[in-house]
Amino acid sequence: MDIFTIAIWVLTVGLLIFSFIKNKRKTKDALKRAFFMGRGMALSIFAVIFAIGIILAVLPPDKISEIIGKQNLFVATIAAAVFGTITLIPAFIAFPLIGTLAGAGVGIMPSVAFLTTLTMVGVATFPLEKKEFGTKFAVTRNVLSFLFAIVIAIIMGVILK
């Protein structure tokens, strides 16, 4: 657990105790509501997780960098953004991978595109986002994030050349 996760746990437990002292009934209702919220999302979250697992099995990170590395800069940037969109890799794997990507001559642009779409745009999380926020919200946010990830990648490629 990183420090922020721990902080959120501490904060929540503190709030829970405070809430319980202030009003038992309201706290009970809140816990009940949290339970319903979790129950409502549980199946979808497991679907997301197992989807990520299978995507990573078919497309492991080293295979991705192999594919990206073979392309020219333009295709590589788009491909990196697309790979970032369909995968969801934890930061501790993603950063070393991108470090090697950038070091192996793939260039800054594809690396940044990959890094940004990796966390912000998600095919695997899309069904859940759609369920929670509606189709229009999910489509708009993901499309905009994808486009801006490429813009960021291009600007960084130019600045850091």
């Binding site: 657990m1 709030l15 809140a30 919220m37 999302m41 979250i45 997780i49 990520i52 697992g53 969801l88």
Partner: peptide, 25 residues
């Protein structure tokens, strides 16, 4: 695929319960 999912399940269990409770509170 199932092996890969293990990391994400642990990640999820560490954060989701507390997020639900915090959100409800």
């Amino acid at each position: 695929g199932i092996k890969n999912s293990k990391y994400y399940i642990i990640e999820m269990l560490m954060i989701m319960p507390v997020i639900f409770v915090l959100t409800a509170l």
